[in-house]
């Protein structure tokens, strides 16, 4: 059976990505554990992304509030603004926007870093130096993205909610106490837990795709650029696909 070239490439790549993911799980459970590098990657991936995520989250919270207000006024439920904004930020906007920003920043940097390491034989050099480059480079990075993105999402949510609070206060006056009472009164575990859990998957997907693209980068500087680029594209797409799956799974468990 002859499939069109791009279809075959797509299926081939999906297969390679699955194999890569499988290898990640195999390698991650085996010693030795690259703890120092993992912590270092957590710092780079998590802490250093905070300003970007915080700024985006702040703006999203503010803009969302200002955009929602006219519609809510139309329905005469302006007082529900904090509840509405809170739920949209915690459930959807926070995780997805943070994950997309994260994919843009970290997915591309991992793709480019591993790509250039591959091209300049740094990965081979590691292997020769008695280091499993997969463990040292891939496992640490994927673990870091998986564990750091949820924390970024949480902090992003917090900043975003603060932005929304300022947004609420642009045209009306609401005390911070009333605001957070309204926000948290309308949140339930069914809103927070699925959003928190799915952000682990977002982080994992971004890490795996970034590493996969970088690790399998073709020779030459052009290859590095291409792997960085496709890492962002594929990772962002994965975020949306996972989001779709997540909403269906939460729906299945009756958490919506």
């Amino acid at each position: 059976m002859q499939l069109p070239q791009h279809t075959r490439n797509f299926i081939l790549e999906a297969g390679e990505l699955s194999r890569f993911t499988g290898r990640f799980f195999r390698e991650s459970v085996k010693p030795r554990y690259e703890v120092n590098e993992f912590i270092n990657q957590c710092f780079i991936v998590g802490y250093k992304s905070l300003p970007l995520v915080g700024l985006t989250g702040f703006i999203m919270g503010l803009v969302l509030t200002m955009q929602l207000r006219p519609s809510l006024i139309d329905y005469g439920v302006e007082s529900e603004l904090p509840a509405m904004v809170g739920i949209s930020i915690v459930r959807e906007i926070g995780p997805v926007i943070t994950a997309l920003i994260f994919a843009g920043k970290i997915g591309s940097s991992i793709g480019a870093e591993l790509g250039s390491m591959k091209v300049t034989e740094q990965i081979d050099a590691m292997e020769v130096s008695g280091t499993n480059p997969f463990k040292y480079l891939v496992v640490t990075r994927v673990m870091a993205t998986t564990l750091m993105l949820p924390i970024l999402v949480l902090l992003g949510d917090a900043i975003s909610l603060y932005g929304a609070y300022l947004g609420v206060n642009i045209k009306a006056t609401t005390s911070f106490h009333l605001y957070y009472t309204q926000v948290f009164d309308n949140l339930s575990f069914g809103d927070v837990i699925p959003a928190f859990v799915k952000s682990f998957f977002f982080g994992f997907a971004i890490g795996v795709v970034g590493c996969f693209k970088g690790y399998n980068s073709s020779k030459g500087t052009e290859g590095v650029g291409r792997s960085a680029n496709s890492a962002v594209v594929v990772a962002s797409l994965m975020v949306f696909i996972l989001d779709l799956i997540a909403v269906q799974v939460t729906d299945l468990f009756g958490l919506n």
């Binding site: 957590c42 710092f43 802490y47 924390i151 949480l154 902090l155 948290f184 575990f189 927070v192």
Partner: peptide, 30 residues
């Protein structure tokens, strides 16, 4: 590296703290 680890620690604790506070506030309601 020590300072970096410190920053990372603050970052992680802040995130987890926010999660705990959120869950507590929801849990208090329930």
């Amino acid at each position: 590296k020590r300072i970096n680890n410190l920053k990372l620690g603050i970052f992680t604790i802040a995130g987890i703290l926010f999660l705990v506070i959120t869950l507590y506030m929801i849990g208090r309601d329930q």
